[in-house]
Design a protein around this nucleic acid. Structure first.
Lengths: 226, 226
DNA sequence: ATCATGCTTCGACTACCATCGAACAATGCT
DNA sequence: AGCATTGTTCGATGGTAGTCGAAGCATGAT
């Protein structure tokens, strides 16, 4: 029974409000500097620095020095998944059921989960790709079908590059708001990239919300229906 | 950005070694009394009581008073899933890569995850049931096929009862050791029940390990192959 | 060179909380 | 009724960790 300490070690890292704020900010997927994270957490730079070194030592966050800035990001998709899982429990057992504000509404519809699209639109995308046979599900693992490969290439995604990388191309990621899976992995990330590049959607600064433009939303739903 | 405090609230509950030990003990699925949990955590009854009230207030644990005992259990499968997710991160980013001992080996092969079978055998079961068409996967949700329903009834599972209950019959649960899904939900729980009732396997006391007897192991693999 | 910016380290303070001893309440056994 | 067992509450203690001010290092800009 020595897994207790290890479990608590990781959980305690998330268990501080300042660090939790930093981590949720990093859930947006973009790397942030130490001072940005300090503001995000509502603490001074010194304390933020202390927290960030703990997070990196703990393996939750990785850091890349660039000039006089240090950019911090989540260590990997698995960390993001863990955070979503904790949020899920927090949401269902929250002491005060704060009724969803407009921001919360937007979050439920479309938000960034680490680097791919989550929320109801993310789930719709996942389901539509499955229904059209562009991705398939075998042994509870996702994969790209031959037709899907051609289709994604056509959509402007460099499948060769994705397949060459270590990272899994397809992966299911469970949602906390809707309790369904959406598409993660490098393909999920690439699709979100395309949506933004096409001007269909725009990342709101300093937030996880993904705002679809009206024509972008139409194009997106058209994509699913076809 | 007020989700930080909520996130940290839940994580901090898991972030204490004593509480983490209690929670991992409860991952076995069986409800435990306060004093059993005190021993499990290595603290006195007083501190255990304090921790347990925090866990129940926090919504991670539910309690049922029975005579002069109070039985504690995880609040639900979602909590178990969260704990597994945290363990997953802890395992991959562990500071000291403790080489797997014999106990750890057994845990990887077959263990209880809340109330169903996890580990490599759990994954094999899940895959075999899918391959034989006894359960199917649509839109990343599992369901029982008609043939499967008959087969499970034949195996001694009261499907009527399962379907009448609120709890989902089939559910995928992600594993931390193997990174694959295994079968959760009331059907997963019922299957584990049958394995134990058939004498194929035995729960090790005070541990999550599921020990298959040699003939039980043969019967189990035969079940999958057929 | 000099200054400014971003970040870390050091030191001290504070607050919280985990822990246990002791007393108390509740239940069950005989 | 009397006693043992189980569990909670209270109070005191100690340690730990989060916090910030001030100083120290880098790197980049002028």
């Amino acid at each position: 029974m020595k897994e207790g300490p290890e479990l608590s070690r990781v959980a305690a890292l998330v268990g501080d409000p300042a660090r939790a704020n930093m981590l949720t900010a990093l859930m947006g997927g973009t790397a942030l500097t130490a001072s940005e994270l300090a503001i995000e957490a509502g603490v001074t730079q010194q304390t933020a620095s202390s927290h960030l070194s703990r997070l990196t030592d703990g393996g939750l966050v990785r850091v890349a020095a660039q000039g006089r800035h240090r950019y911090f990001a989540l260590a990997g998709p698995q960390v993001a998944g863990m955070l979503e899982a904790i949020m899920g429990v927090a949401a269902l057992s929250g002491p005060r059921r704060t009724r969803p504000g407009p921001r919360d509404q937007a979050m439920r519809e479309a938000r960034v989960c680490y680097d791919h699209l989550a929320g109801t639109l993310g789930v719709s995308l996942h389901d539509a790709l499955l229904a059209r046979g562009l991705i398939r599900e075998t042994d509870s693992a996702l994969s790209v079908s031959p037709e899907g490969r051609a289709w994604f290439c056509d959509f402007g995604i460099d499948m060769d590059r994705l397949e060459a990388a270590r990272r899994p191309v397809c992966k299911a990621c469970l949602d906390w708001s809707v309790r369904r899976s959406h598409l993660a992995g490098s393909l999920g990330a690439a699709l979100l990239d395309r949506f933004v590049a096409n001007g269909w959607a725009r990342r709101e600064a300093g937030s996880r919300v993904v705002a679809f433009t009206p024509p972008g939303h139409r194009a997106f739903t058209g994509l699913l229906a076809r």
